[in-house]
Amino acid sequence: MSTAGKTAIVTGSSRGIGKAVAERLAKDGFSVVVNYSGDAAAAEETVTAIKWAGGKAIAFKADVADEVAVAAMFDAAEAEFGGIDVVVNSAGIMVLSPIAELKLEDLDRMHRINIRGTFVVNQQAARRVRHGGAIVNLSTSVEKQAIPGYAAYAASKGAVEAIGMILARELRGRRITVNTVAPGPTATDLFLKGKDDALIAQMAKLNPMERLGTPEDIAEVISFLAGRNTWINGQVLYANGGMN
């Protein structure tokens, strides 16, 4: 499938998995909108890296839970590159705590970004992605592990999976695939924050490959779904080295 003249929006792409996805899709030939919510310098670094490698990219600040800001981002993508073919929603936050101890304001924050943000981005994508395009959301493999402390985060990602599976069916007739990628433990700032070396080593051994995933591992899966997939649709793909 040719990516010539095609455009991708990648939310949360100033760092981590989103950054790796933006750079990989640019390498694949997509023009890329690098979305960020706060760190403009990091987003510009991603744009610079893409341009240095010969790709096309712009940065756009938008809170994914703000429908006005997200609509403006889609407007900017269409104005700059002529249309939208792929949307990857990787923006998300994670707060870990036992259910009995979790602050409800942290639960609300995760619901706002992870659930409302996914819904808002997917709503614009459903309206604007061109026929033959792709929508990819990010979930987590931790749901199947039932690890204490992850209840609120896993619950928010369960909602992400439901949104994707239903949207795939609502887009019948437009040849747009909608899938969710569920990474296992991946070496990003989001995952590593607050964990000691012993816990990280323990989680790395949960899969038979006996290592953490890398952002590039996940970007490889999304690259396929965005540019070479025409038949996998409405699915949750577990990218975790065989953890489940």
Rank of each mutant, 00 (worst) to 15 (best):
G55W: 02
V120C: 05
G133D: 06
T214L: 08
G164Q: 04
A49R: 12
A126P: 09
H111M: 15
G54V: 08
G83Y: 09
G242H: 08
T11K: 07
L192R: 10
P208T: 07
R169Q: 14
A43R: 09
S223V: 00
H131C: 09
L206S: 14
A20H: 04
K51M: 13
E210S: 11
D189Y: 04
I176V: 15
P148M: 02
I222D: 04
S14K: 08
D66C: 01
W52P: 14
T3S: 09
A162Q: 12
V142L: 14
V34L: 01
E44L: 10
G227K: 09
I17Q: 11
V129N: 10
A204E: 09
A151K: 00
A4K: 14
D66F: 00
L96M: 13
L96P: 04
I99Q: 01
A8Q: 11
S31P: 12
I99T: 15
A57R: 04
S139Q: 03
D39A: 13
V10E: 09
V70L: 06
A49T: 12
I50E: 03
S90A: 15
T177K: 13
A65P: 06
G132A: 01
L190W: 03
T46L: 03
V64F: 04
R174A: 11
R116G: 01
L107V: 15
L237Y: 05
M165R: 13
V181Q: 05
V95L: 11
A182G: 10
F119D: 01
G38E: 14
S2P: 13
V121L: 04
D196C: 05
E101F: 07
G132D: 01
L237F: 11
K51I: 15
M209C: 06
V87R: 07
G29H: 01
A152W: 02
V33S: 09
N244S: 12
G241C: 06
R128L: 03
S14D: 14
V87M: 06
A152K: 02
A100E: 11
K103N: 15
S37A: 14
S31A: 15
V178Y: 00
